[in-house]
Design a protein around this nucleic acid. Structure first.
Lengths: 120, 120
DNA sequence: TTATCATATGAACAGTTATACATATCTTAA
DNA sequence: TTAAGATATGTATAACTGTTCATATGATAA
């Protein structure tokens, strides 16, 4: 168990242990990323980047079944990525806060893909 | 299929369709988030925030089995989150680019959890 | 070459998850 | 109250994924 830079790495291992976030934080973080790590849910988020939408319009925008969208919205909401507001018979969903958009846009930059906001 | 703001929402649905990133981009994005959506992999990334580390030191830092770490490193590498460099008998891994760190820190801010960098 | 260490990989199992279908709940209108 | 529309939820199934164990590959030293 000796790599070529033992002393330097041993120091880093110690620092890594000291700076490792608590298990609970890591799990919340993982849950957050998991929430936005499915194409069906990402499509919902990109649709909501146009603003608040009620469920049936999200269904139209993403082209999935109503029940699938509803299940996914529940997951996104539980993860704090979207919020819901009752509006008469409908429920209007929107992106929960700007960090969500920021993370998506950063990731888009990283992957050099369309951010969903060009050509508005 | 009529919500209370039909015209306004119909417009948003159209915009959502127009601005929806191509399916390939959405899938790459989802794959990217999936790669960092597992506690075991997040721990590896937080360890690598201290700098380049070879596999066995990552193993020490995160406290998992060598084979599990190796499997996870492969996934992180395939997703473009980390890069590998052979160094003699060892292979040194490091975070692939600054976007990865930026996304992690943004998410930490969003969730108000430790960033893994305080108290250095 | 052979031995040894570091890392990667294949296979199997367990746990997780996305979807569809059917149905329930909630809200409004009559 | 009843009817109808919008959304949510329970269940089942199929697909996926993380871990472990065993083994293979690749590099170095003798």
């Amino acid at each position: 168990m000796n790599c070529d830079h033992e002393a330097e790495h041993a120091d880093k291992v110690k620092r890594a242990a000291r700076n490792m976030p608590p298990a609970g934080d890591i799990e919340r973080l993982a849950a957050g990323f998991k929430a936005i790590s499915e194409p069906s849910r990402l499509k919902i988020l990109f649709a909501l980047m146009q603003g608040e939408l009620c469920v049936q319009h999200i269904v139209e925008a993403v082209g999935s079944m109503q029940s699938a969208v509803s299940h996914q919205l529940r997951i996104l909401k539980a993860a704090g990525a979207v919020k819901a507001r009752r509006d008469g018979q409908n429920i209007a969903y929107s992106i929960a806060d700007s960090h969500v958009v920021a993370v998506l846009e950063l990731a888009c930059t990283h992957l050099r893909c369309g951010s969903g906001e060009e050509g508005r």
